[in-house]
Amino acid sequence: MVRIVFRDVAGNAQEINAEPGVSLMVSAKAHGIAGIEAECGGSMVCATCHIYVDEPWFSAIGAAGPIEAEMVEYTRHPRLTSRLSCQILVTEAMDGMEVGVPLSQR
């Protein structure tokens, strides 16, 4: 069980039990996290599962790769701690991680 907290722009938080070994996007969709659209289902072509990863977790899991970073640039509200949740493979080490959901995905 890996607890992950999603927070919207108003600060409302929702904790989910994410499944290790699959992407954070898949667990977010399974728990109906508002604002995670994931139109392309994890193919890295839409950037509608965009999140901000809080420190110290962002440093721990690392920044986006080159293609992901390019996709993040095209989102409405990119930040330095932006990631696509479809590209984050959940591990036990992420237990307690907090992430923010942007104002809009498109």
Binding site: V45, E70, R76
Partner: peptide, 18 residues
């Protein structure tokens, strides 16, 4: 298809549309 999509993204991204 991926590199071509990336060529197109700057004009079709949510940001470009906005």
């Amino acid at each position: 298809n991926v590199p071509y999509r990336h060529v197109l993204m700057p004009k079709f991204s949510p940001r470009a549309v906005a």
